[in-house]
Simulated assay, not measured.
Amino acid sequence: MSEKKSCCCSAAPKLLFACSGGADVGALADQVARKLTADGVAKMFCLAGIGGRVSGILKTTEAASKIVAIDGCPLNCARKSLEEAGFTDFGHVQLADLGFKKGESPVTEERVMTAAMAVAPHFANLS
């Protein structure tokens, strides 16, 4: 049986919020967060819960040791959702800044790997 990697054994989890929007770059952001979760780098968490001000999700996010938002396009919906909920101390990666263009970047394993390698260093200095 394979051992599942865990990023969140401590009291202060490392959280990822992906825009997961309707465009291809939103789907790419979603898959990057899922990959990093599967790899034990951090835990993908519910951006809709942030927008809906769900108390348990807000409390867990407040307790996080690190938060990173992954946005697919320059609209920055994930970043803005966190800011609207009062969060200011978090990392942010916009896939458009990595050269992924909306409508021209279907999800592929190579694109997920490239983007994941850009997000993962945001968690490198944490235990």
Rank of each mutant, 00 (worst) to 15 (best):
K5Q: 10
C7Q: 06
S10G: 14
S10Y: 00
K14E: 10
L15D: 07
L15E: 02
A18H: 01
A23E: 15
A23C: 07
A23D: 08
A23W: 02
D24C: 13
G26N: 04
D30K: 09
D30Y: 03
V32Q: 05
A38Q: 06
A42I: 07
A42W: 02
K43S: 14
G49S: 11
G49K: 12
I50C: 03
S55N: 11
I57Q: 09
K59Y: 04
T60H: 10
T61S: 07
E62Q: 15
E62R: 15
A64M: 04
A64I: 00
A64L: 00
S65Q: 14
K66V: 06
I67V: 08
I67A: 04
I70T: 11
D71T: 08
D71A: 07
G72I: 10
G72Q: 03
C73W: 01
L75Y: 07
L75R: 15
C77G: 11
R79W: 05
S81C: 15
S81Q: 13
E84L: 13
A85P: 14
A85L: 07
G86R: 00
F87C: 04
H92L: 07
A96N: 12
D97C: 04
D97F: 10
F100G: 11
K102C: 10
K102R: 14
S105G: 09
P106K: 05
V107E: 10
E109T: 15
V112F: 01
M113T: 15
M113D: 11
M113Y: 01
V119F: 04
V119A: 05
A120D: 09
H122I: 00
F123W: 07
A124M: 07
N125G: 13
L126M: 03
